[in-house]
């Protein structure tokens, strides 16, 4: 049983949609302090949307999201920016600033938010880059590094201000097995060594199940199931089982719903 004090993020009765399309239809969710929470679900479920809602980039239609007891969407712009210093979001693309070197990308939040002397910024940046194994790439530009390296640089940048929580948006997409192994080890290592709270949004079930402490499975605007990885793997929901086992057909149909039958569609072309 999760108490309010255990939760760093509390999502309650969250409703959100794009026009008539409902993304979330009243979901409840808790991100527990110091743990790695995985948010799973098929593509198009709105997993990334959830991270943007937690980060206050988008506003929910109804419900609330609290970060450490503070309602994210009842803050002024400056208060929201203060809150964001305590959370990092790792975008799928890395979102590195392309006109800055790897070193300057990691130094960016330090230069923006602190008055540290240059020597201290240099030491801090090199420490963060060493933590992700990229001290040697400090002088390179984002165009000169691989996608996996870009995500590691983004990680170093995200931990530069030593936040309470890091949210990872599809960190494993498009990675080769070695990069994926490195990222998994880094997420786990950073979470432990920096006493972070981590949220991983992904559809790479197998890999995330190895490191997650708690799992939520979302689909159709609802939380289908949640619990420890072992509990979720034995879910009674057909949809959760289809998703976890990667079956092509099931409650989520292989075929996108068509307006008329296959035979009717073929015959229509002959008229």
């Amino acid at each position: 049983m999760t108490t309010a004090a255990d939760s760093l993020v509390r999502v309650r009765s969250l409703k959100f949609g794009f026009g008539p399309k409902v993304i979330y239809d009243g979901i409840d969710l808790d991100i527990v302090r110091g743990k790695i929470t995985a948010i799973l679900g098929p593509s198009g479920t709105g997993k990334t949307t959830l991270l943007r809602l937690i980060g206050g980039q988008w506003k929910p239609d109804a419900g609330s999201i609290e970060f450490d007891g503070i309602d994210v969407h009842r803050q002024s712009r400056s208060q929201l920016f203060e809150l964001r210093k305590r959370m990092g979001l790792l975008f799928q693309s890395g979102a590195l600033l392309t006109d800055l070197s790897v070193f300057e990308n990691v130094a960016f939040p330090l230069r923006e938010h602190t008055a540290f002397p240059e020597s201290m910024i240099r030491d801090l940046v090199l420490m963060k880059l060493e933590a992700v194994g990229l001290r040697g790439a400090a002088k390179l530009y984002p165009s000169e590094i691989s996608g996996g390296m870009a995500r590691r640089v983004a990680m170093a940048r995200a931990i530069a201000l030593e936040p309470d929580m890091i949210m990872y948006d599809e960190p494993f997409t498009g990675q080769d097995p070695i990069s994926m192994g490195v990222l998994i080890r880094l997420i786990q290592g950073l979470n432990k060594s920096l006493d972070l709270t981590s949220v991983i949004v992904t559809h790479d079930v197998e890999d995330v199940m190895r490191i997650a402490d708690y799992v939520y499975v979302l689909s159709g605007g609802k939380v289908l199931d949640h619990g420890s990885p072992a509990e979720v793997q034995h879910s009674k929901s057909d949809l959760v089982r289809q998703f976890l086992n990667g079956e092509a057909d099931g409650p989520v149909s292989f075929h996108y719903k068509a307006a008329r039958g296959y035979a009717d569609d073929l015959m229509a072309g002959r008229e």
């Binding site: 959370m87 975008f91 939040p109």
Partner: peptide, 14 residues
């Protein structure tokens, strides 16, 4: 398009 502006916002940079 490459999320650099969103990334800045999430780093509390306007």
């Amino acid at each position: 398009a490459t999320d650099q502006l969103s990334g800045m916002e999430m780093m509390a940079v306007d």
